[in-house]
Write a protein that binds this DNA or RNA. Structure first.
Ligand SMILES: [Mn+2]
Ligand SMILES: [Mn+2]
Ligand SMILES: [Zn+2]
Ligand SMILES: [Zn+2]
Lengths: 138, 138
DNA sequence: CTCCTGATGAAAATTGTTTTCATTATAAAG
DNA sequence: CTTTATAATGAAAACAATTTTCATCAGGAG
């Protein structure tokens, strides 16, 4: 469970440890799929009914700045957040339930070299994301 | 110039050919980079000052349905549209000026097989997008 | 325990997009 | 070249998502 680690990280960065932050962090850290601010709000209010949606936005913003979570782009929207991957990893998402896993080991360098030569672009970054059905949803 | 082709396609799908649509189509078809609805609006008003932003949204929606344009996801936002690629192609975007080119010929099947085996997911789709600097911006 | 200040949530403001609706303009029919 | 039916338009209103403002509260240093 990364919730405690995130809360510690928040404190180490000079932020106070509040009930609201704890409620948000526990929901996001425990989720296997990307959640929108509104989903986080609804889920986190079970533990902390006074929580305001504004605080969800503010907490997600901080967690993203600290690279503990990352934004996930999907066909249905690009405002959902997920526990961040480590190092050079890419996402694989279930199209039915949303369950996300990271993978690594893609070797695209030969492709990049070929594209760079054909187009004249100096390639700097890449986005790769896979979609499919997780074992439970097949 | 694909503008005339798009206008013909609109007519063939039973839509009327209007000055507003023409203004929108000419801007989007001529652009080498993805444009937001507001950018299209501002640019297209030079040719058709009466144009309304609503009509830009409605026209972009139709062009997207007809697969003549496609939405482009970028770090700065996911609401920009670009002339669609043909067949199996992916985008390469200039991080400085936005100039977009499509490429093809990526062979990711071995990677997908390996990921499928490791994760148990049945892989169905993939997003691949490259970022770099075009020749003029290097 | 006290105090300072960062954090909070309600409400307002802002931004981006969609809906509504009276009017206009396209294109088919005569 | 009219006439006519109706799709399309743009202004304004409605709506949704996000951000800002601000009075109040609570974390944690001392
Ligand atoms: Mn990679
Ligand atoms: Mn591909
Ligand atoms: Zn699933
Ligand atoms: Zn460039």
């Amino acid at each position: 469970m990364s919730a405690e680690r995130w809360l510690t990280a928040l404190q180490e960065n000079g932020y106070r440890l509040t009930e609201s932050r704890r409620a948000v962090v526990e929901i996001v850290a425990a989720s296997a799929r990307a959640l929108t601010p509104l989903e986080v709000f609804d889920l986190a209010r079970a533990a902390h009914p006074d929580l305001g949606l504004v605080t969800v936005y503010r907490t997600l913003e901080k967690l993203e700045e600290m690279h503990l979570i990352q934004r996930v782009h999907q066909p249905g929207g690009c405002q959902a957040f997920l526990t961040a991957g480590q190092g050079h990893q890419h996402l694989l998402l279930c199209q039915k339930c949303g369950r996300a896993v990271f993978f690594e080991g893609d070797d695209l360098q030969p492709l990049f070299d070929s594209i760079a030569e054909k187009t004249g672009y100096a390639i700097q970054e890449h986005w790769l994301q896979l979609f499919g059905l997780c074992r439970a949803c097949q």
